[in-house]
Design a protein around this nucleic acid. Sequence first.
DNA 1: GAGGGAAAGTACCAATTTCAACTAATTTAA
DNA 2: TTAAATTAGTTGAAATTGGTACTTTCCCTC
Lengths: 152, 152
Amino acid sequence: MTKWLSADEQQSWRSFIAAWTLLNHQLNDDLQSRHGLTIADYEILVRLSETQCRRMRMSELAESTLASRSRLSHQVGRMEAAGLVTREECTEDRRGSFAVLTEAGWQALADAAPAHVTGVRTHLVDVLSKSEFKALGDACQKITTAISQESD
Amino acid sequence: MTKWLSADEQQSWRSFIAAWTLLNHQLNDDLQSRHGLTIADYEILVRLSETQCRRMRMSELAESTLASRSRLSHQVGRMEAAGLVTREECTEDRRGSFAVLTEAGWQALADAAPAHVTGVRTHLVDVLSKSEFKALGDACQKITTAISQESD
DNA sequence: GAGGGAAAGTACCAATTTCAACTAATTTAA
DNA sequence: TTAAATTAGTTGAAATTGGTACTTTCCCTC
């Protein structure tokens, strides 16, 4: 017999969906209107900027951004067309290729980051107390861990 | 001067993104493979099933599912083609129309609901303690409230 | 060192989503 | 009462996404 969700559980679950949806839209629209970047672009720029050589293997980047290979390939293609990244072939493994941050990509990130981070604070971090935010993070961490383990 | 995110904050934020992304994928894949429905389909079926007459105005449905009007229109079009809903015109306001649950739509929901709810439990509710889950819900509630108010 | 399987990445196609323009009906206000 | 502004909803084209098949290279085992 199915154990249905209680009204409270239902409410929590819907809040979770709503929070993510609204937050994502809000941040995306901000980023898009002020800097012409999508969140997906931004996430990739961040990942690349965090590496030593401003480059990352395509598959690593896909895994890190939770995108399918196909999606990432399209995404990087668009960003390449926009001049934000380049592709370089990988000499150690000739099947592979790197996505490399261009100077323009680095600049775009530098330009966009302050407003984006401020947005994350305004809409998320500052809306919650420190402990509430931590609780949110911890819960989400558990969820991701559970799902990841399970699909092994 | 921008106040950057601390490592902990960064981590919480990324966990939030990851949790939603993974959960959404997981539930969607389950629903799709077992019942041929997407989460979007399911959400609409639920909303309609919760009303008195199994019908809802398009705009109300759009608002309730946080979808754009256009997206909802396409979505309902697809569901109509699949026989899950019908459109009926609204006599009080002749611009408007209702999405109405068909018997097949009701059945599809009845068929899919147990597995879906179980999935929500398995991947979300049961992974957390009662208080953790409540904390997640409360935090998300605050986030949605904050964003909604602001765009007034 | 040859063959078979796995991995990296892309390309193509179908499905979904977005954007902007559009029609038609309603409301407002002069 | 009628013209302008709003609102409901749809449409079609363009952009994004997802699935799968394909190519190339690597790894493993014999």
